[in-house]
Design a protein around this nucleic acid. Sequence first.
DNA 1: TAGTGCTGGTCTCTTTCTGAGACCACCATC
DNA 2: GATGGTGGTCTCAGAAAGAGACCAGCACTA
Lengths: 134, 134
Amino acid sequence: MDSSLVKLRSKLEIYKAMTDGGNLSDCPVRDVIQGLSGKWSSLLMAALAEQPYRFGELRRLVPDISQRMLTQTLYDLQRDGYVHREVFPTKPPSVEYSLTDLGRSMFGALQHLLQWAENNHDAVRDARAAFDAA
Amino acid sequence: MDSSLVKLRSKLEIYKAMTDGGNLSDCPVRDVIQGLSGKWSSLLMAALAEQPYRFGELRRLVPDISQRMLTQTLYDLQRDGYVHREVFPTKPPSVEYSLTDLGRSMFGALQHLLQWAENNHDAVRDARAAFDAA
DNA sequence: TAGTGCTGGTCTCTTTCTGAGACCACCATC
DNA sequence: GATGGTGGTCTCAGAAAGAGACCAGCACTA
């Protein structure tokens, strides 16, 4: 299942890319990852990957996000080019959020991690329980 | 490049897994992702994927992490079963951190995202610049 | 014509999380 | 005895996140 040699090569490159001598804090890889590491980013990406949603729909879909964080996370995702925001001039103006091509591309990569989490969450839970017991 | 039908199916499943009716905050997928979404988790995983390191080595390797956050992030990664911590009874006791099998497995999935970030950071940077200009 | 509700937000307040750096015990070496 | 390297912990200030009140605009209803 693992082509370890290929993976090892990538690991070294990725680590290098994340360390990127000199301006550590300006490292582009870390900069991109940072934008995705918010508490709600991946969840909203997963929702919007399914279909476009309006603000209120997202709010009802994810009841435990505060309105403030929903606004802000969508703003950040839009700023990074993953999400498109379109305002429709209906009587109460409605706003629709959808993934851009860049967003869909990014989600393709993020997906592997989400899938792994789904497949292995019991292993993590067990590890956590064993650790806390000791 | 995209096998869209397959991906669409996964998307729906992943979103479902992240929403997981009822106990939203106890959703296992979100629980796992949460542990990985810290500022330093992915960077330390990338470092340890290359080779095992000792505490002080990691500190020197990532100069802009505070000692406190290094301790805490390693503790969290260890608790979730990704990292193994071994104390050697040398004269000043030394501590070595390495990836577990679970950690290597997880990094295999995380890797896709890091690779994407490396390949596309200029697109994100451009999107950000365009957004800020408007 | 006033009340109610739906739209997508913003503002303020409180609590939690991070970051910077002082401090610590231990031992070896100088 | 002083100094440095080991892997941490503790305290305190600043940044970020969560809860929830509030807002303008228009439609529908009474």
